[in-house]
Amino acid sequence: MTVSFIFKIALVFFLFFIIINLAKALFIIAKGDQPQKPLSHFLGRRVMLSAAVVLLLLLALSMGWITPNPRPY
Rank of each mutant, 00 (worst) to 15 (best):
M1E: 09
M1K: 04
M1I: 06
T2F: 07
T2Q: 07
T2K: 10
V3G: 08
V3Q: 13
V3A: 12
F5G: 04
I6K: 13
I6R: 13
I9W: 01
I9P: 01
A10S: 06
A10Q: 10
A10I: 04
A10D: 08
V12I: 15
V12H: 13
F14Y: 11
F14R: 04
F14Q: 07
L15A: 10
L15V: 09
F17P: 00
F17D: 03
I18T: 04
I20V: 15
L22V: 12
L22K: 09
L22R: 10
A23I: 15
A23E: 14
K24W: 09
L26P: 03
I28G: 05
I29D: 01
K31A: 04
K31D: 06
G32W: 00
G32E: 00
D33P: 00
Q34T: 09
P35R: 00
P35G: 04
P35V: 03
K37N: 14
K37W: 11
P38R: 02
L39C: 02
S40M: 11
S40V: 06
H41F: 15
F42H: 12
F42M: 03
L43K: 03
G44V: 04
G44T: 04
G44D: 02
R45D: 13
R45C: 09
R46L: 12
V47E: 13
V47M: 11
V47S: 13
M48A: 14
L49H: 05
L49W: 06
S50F: 08
A52L: 13
V53D: 00
L55V: 05
L56G: 03
L56E: 01
L57G: 03
L57A: 07
L59A: 09
L59H: 04
L59Q: 02
L59I: 09
A60R: 01
L61I: 01
G64M: 07
W65T: 12
I66E: 01
T67V: 15
P68Q: 11
N69Q: 10
N69H: 07
N69D: 06
P70H: 01
P70W: 04
R71Y: 14
R71G: 08
R71Q: 15
P72D: 09
Y73F: 14
Y73E: 15
